[in-house]
Amino acid sequence: MKLSEIPAEEYLLEGNSACHGCGSSMALRTVLKALGKRTVLVVPASCTSVYQGMYPGSAIAVPVVNSAFACSSAVASGLKASLEHQGIDANVVVWAGDGGTYDIGLQALSGAAERNEDILYICYNNEMYSNTGIQRSSATPFGAWTTTTVSGKKEHRKDVAELMMAHGIPYVATASAGYLDDLYRKVRKAKRIEGFRYIEILTPCPPGWRYSMERTVEVAKLAVETGMWILYEYEHGVLRLTGVSRAIAAGKKKMKDVQEYLLLQGRFSHLSSAEIQEIRKYIAERWKKFADVRGGEHAVAAEFFV
């Protein structure tokens, strides 16, 4: 895809109050370009509730409905039904963080996915509660420091994208703020599909992950290059790795050691070699799981080990 294909229109405006180097705002800018004007965003409590700006201003140039924390999927369901009932065509899109997706919003998300509501749900995953000041979420990776896991998180993260695949929805994809062209393409595709669609974007957070603000793209790319974050699409029962993850699986690109990713971030600076080894093991097991899927035991087929 050529960069010139991405529209020049801006829907996330200058002067928004996101932190410097915010991965979420980079991703949102791209997502809105892919969705275009006829889009309504439903935003639960999250960093985006803050960086969209304060009343009476707004830094988002499409209609936005701010929802309570737990219920963005339900608000979006009602909004879509309402617009449909009046014959109004629009992309109804939830834009939620990992707190609003993995934790407090999970029940409403599962309900809307099971009902196959015609909405696009995008989780920008910065692997913690950033907005309340860096607390653990169930998306926080093993070993990561947060203000509520001061010696590092003891558990591995759960994976809601996999959970969404188990719901049998038409489209699931993962993306990274390091590869905005890939994100753009996935949002464009999701926009054309009817039913419940889920995209999860890894969006590094400089103050939370403790790295210097100009390195967001580098960190977001390294997450993929080291196998910590896997890029894929799941469409009508077929799983397909994309981008760098696909190249790694095909043996065209060597997976980098995860230490390179961890060393960049202060949140991992306390890790012992045994803990780093535990993360290596987690990565290997996760990749093996994705590879095993190809064997045909499940109703999905992965083609990345070709």
């Binding site: 039904a81 309402s82 029940q107 309900g111």
Partner: peptide, 21 residues
């Protein structure tokens, strides 16, 4: 919309009302 909880029922009604229904 047959939701999975009353919290979602009221949320969906709020979304529907904001949407103009």
């Amino acid at each position: 919309i047959l939701v999975e909880s009353e919290h979602s029922a009221m949320s969906a009604c709020i979304g529907a009302s904001l949407g103009g229904a």
